[in-house]
Simulated assay, not measured.
Amino acid sequence: MPYSQPTPTLPVRTLGKTGLEVPVLCVGCAPLGDMPDTFAYSVSEERALQTIRAIFKSPITFLDTAASYGDGESERRIGIVLKELGGVPAGYLLATKADRDLQTGDFSGDQMRRSVERSLRLLGLDRLPLLYLHDPEHTTFEKAMAPNGPVEVLQRCKEEGLIEHLGVAGGPIDLMTRFVETDIFEAAISHNRYTLLNTDADAFWDVCQQHRVGAVNAAPYGSGILAKGPRAYPRYEYGAASQTYLEQAIKLEDACQRYQIPLAAVALQFSLRDPRIHSTVIGMTRPERLDETVKLAQTPIPEELWNEIESIRLS
């Protein structure tokens, strides 16, 4: 079956100084690596492959994975489909991340090169279009920036043509801000820190804008609570949600139900409507979730509901 560039049905934005044009939605491929300890559910290889094949026919032309997702399993599964297709189809952008050794915790420059080389091998690619330094909170800023350390080695990989664009993806906002302010990185991912329940990354998007760094917001559903609902899935950022988050999420869900608008649509569009954010990453594990997510992104939301959401958020 021939694969051609999809008809664009999503707005696109320029990903900072990378110059890459990306859709406002990005498919997060972490759960496709089968990570039950993180997500509290498992994803079989068959279902993952079906989902990946569907992604490459969808209008969501931006994919995000990492070496650590299933310790290579997400990349391996994507690589199987890429081999079927003869490479990444035209019009699609695949991003991955260089990681520490999950067994030993090694976060050295040498480990970054090993991570890059394994990603290339598992994905079946000669070059990684966009690669992020991943989870630098597992080392220190000083060690990451040291001579022959992780950042310098990734820069060298870029000079060698193994990486086209270099970004940074992590958790703690203060640490992420320090990396962005070096002006080394072209894109940055923050996760679980710009949602209806937590806006710790608010000032971070301003820093990204000031440094022309592509801004990518991951996990606007707080890893599930704002998609499935707090009563059905009382978890935030891969663990049990706090009582404060639960109570606020219930108020948000009740407000949405009064307007007959899915909580997931409001949670997603909270990120999409922020002009500082170039793309928003949503994890998906079933082919039907692609169309569902596009519909959520395009669901009309009355201003009255947004006003009510804001009052609950700020209370």
Rank of each mutant, 00 (worst) to 15 (best):
255 A>V: 12
236 Y>L: 09
62 F>W: 12
91 G>E: 05
155 Q>H: 01
164 E>Y: 04
236 Y>C: 09
291 D>W: 08
160 E>D: 14
116 V>R: 11
120 L>M: 14
87 G>Q: 04
125 L>E: 07
199 T>D: 12
97 K>Q: 08
48 A>L: 10
171 G>S: 08
168 V>Q: 08
142 E>M: 05
2 P>I: 11
215 A>L: 09
246 L>S: 03
79 G>T: 05
11 P>N: 09
285 T>G: 14
14 T>P: 00
242 S>K: 06
221 Y>A: 13
269 Q>T: 14
155 Q>V: 00
127 R>Y: 14
50 Q>E: 15
62 F>T: 00
268 L>M: 11
16 G>K: 01
302 P>M: 00
301 I>R: 01
154 L>V: 05
146 A>W: 01
65 T>K: 11
223 S>T: 15
272 L>Q: 13
308 E>I: 07
157 C>M: 14
302 P>N: 00
164 E>W: 04
148 N>E: 12
192 N>R: 02
117 E>N: 15
234 P>E: 08
189 I>M: 13
299 T>W: 04
288 E>Q: 15
138 H>Y: 15
52 I>V: 15
172 P>W: 07
14 T>C: 08
189 I>W: 02
22 V>M: 04
136 P>Y: 11
9 T>R: 13
146 A>R: 09
181 E>G: 00
12 V>C: 06
295 K>D: 10
76 R>H: 08
24 V>P: 01
291 D>N: 13
135 D>P: 07
172 P>C: 06
66 A>H: 10
140 T>Q: 07
223 S>E: 13
8 P>W: 00
11 P>T: 08
123 L>R: 12
86 G>Q: 03
273 R>F: 09
161 G>T: 10
195 T>D: 11
